[in-house]
């Protein structure tokens, strides 16, 4: 390729990158603006980055909801993996009738729109007196991510050579020992990838938390959505909250980009 050609391509790439990042950046900048500056026309382009009142105000009133989000997300990720990993291992290594069908069915539950299960879930937790509690959210978030975690973990367990598993069995390992001492260590990095995905999915979730929580157990996305009301929108709080909320996904994207395509396509497409 000629130099001129590369220059043109870089220009096009810069334009594309600008389109996909500038909106995010604009919101980030506003987090450091006073309310007056947010409403100023013409806009204030570069804010004073030492102005942190928006963050202080946001966190002084809402830090416990941020904490809720962290607890729910971590709890759901852990619970989800505890159920998903043995199932994925079993679906790859056991031979039984209806095996493929079972795997397909698990995948198909992933596609279910959460809204279709909303009222039954609501009624069950209402009956159990668990509405507006963190355990209810953890249970639901873990469950909704279970199909993803099972299916993608399966692709990592499948990469372990059959001979290794068989050797462990011949040496007298029980299935549980084979799983814990052989399969888990070998699939370690894959498992970490799956867990990180589940973490991000749970972190980003709004709809389920919207109807399962009301006061105590609200997650951060629900709080953020409540800053936009019919009568008034608190942009100074929204922009500060957005920075905090998108930080994990942004870091995730930059660090794990090699895995994103295969993760989001359930392992169907490899980079």
């Amino acid at each position: 390729m000629t130099n001129q050609n590369v220059g043109f391509k870089l220009l096009a790439a810069a334009f594309i990158t600008f389109i996909f990042t500038a909106p995010i950046l604009w919101m980030v900048l506003s987090a450091f603006k006073t309310i007056n500056d947010i409403y100023a026309i013409p806009p204030v382009w570069i804010p004073d980055f030492t102005y942190l009142d928006n963050f202080k105000l946001l966190l002084s009133e809402n830090w416990e909801f941020l904490l809720n989000s962290v607890i729910v997300t971590l709890g759901a990720t852990a619970l989800c993996m505890i159920f998903a990993l043995p199932a994925a291992f079993g679906l790859v290594n056991f031979r039984f009738r209806g095996q493929e069908f079972l795997a397909d069915w698990i995948l198909s539950t992933r596609m279910m729109p959460p809204i279709a299960a909303a009222v039954p879930i609501f009624i069950v937790f209402n009956t159990l007196g668990m509405l507006d509690t963190l355990p209810a959210l953890i249970l639901v978030y873990a469950g909704f991510n279970l199909p993803f975690a099972v299916w993608v973990s399966m692709s990592f367990f499948r990469n372990i050579p059959k001979e290794v598993i068989e050797a462990a069995r011949v040496e007298g390992c029980t299935w549980f020992q084979t799983f814990r001492l052989v399969a888990l260590p070998l699939a370690k990095s894959g498992i970490a990838t799956v867990a990180t995905f589940v973490f991000i999915f749970a972190w980003n979730e709004l709809l389920l938390s919207l109807f399962l929580t009301s006061r105590e157990a609200k997650t951060f996305p629900v709080v953020i959505s409540s800053f936009s009301t019919v009568t008034k929108t608190y942009w100074e709080l929204i922009s500060a909250a957005t920075i905090i909320q998108i930080l994990p996904p942004v870091i995730f994207t930059l660090l794990m980009q090699r895995h994103i395509v295969s993760g989001l396509t359930m392992g169907a497409v490899k980079n």
Partner: peptide, 28 residues
Amino acid sequence: NRTGQVMRSMAILPMMITPICVGLIFGY
């Protein structure tokens, strides 16, 4: 191209960002 690679990793940021934040970014 190194610069191209860096730009690509930045251009893919939107898809993992919390959807309500995406809505609010454009609402703003």
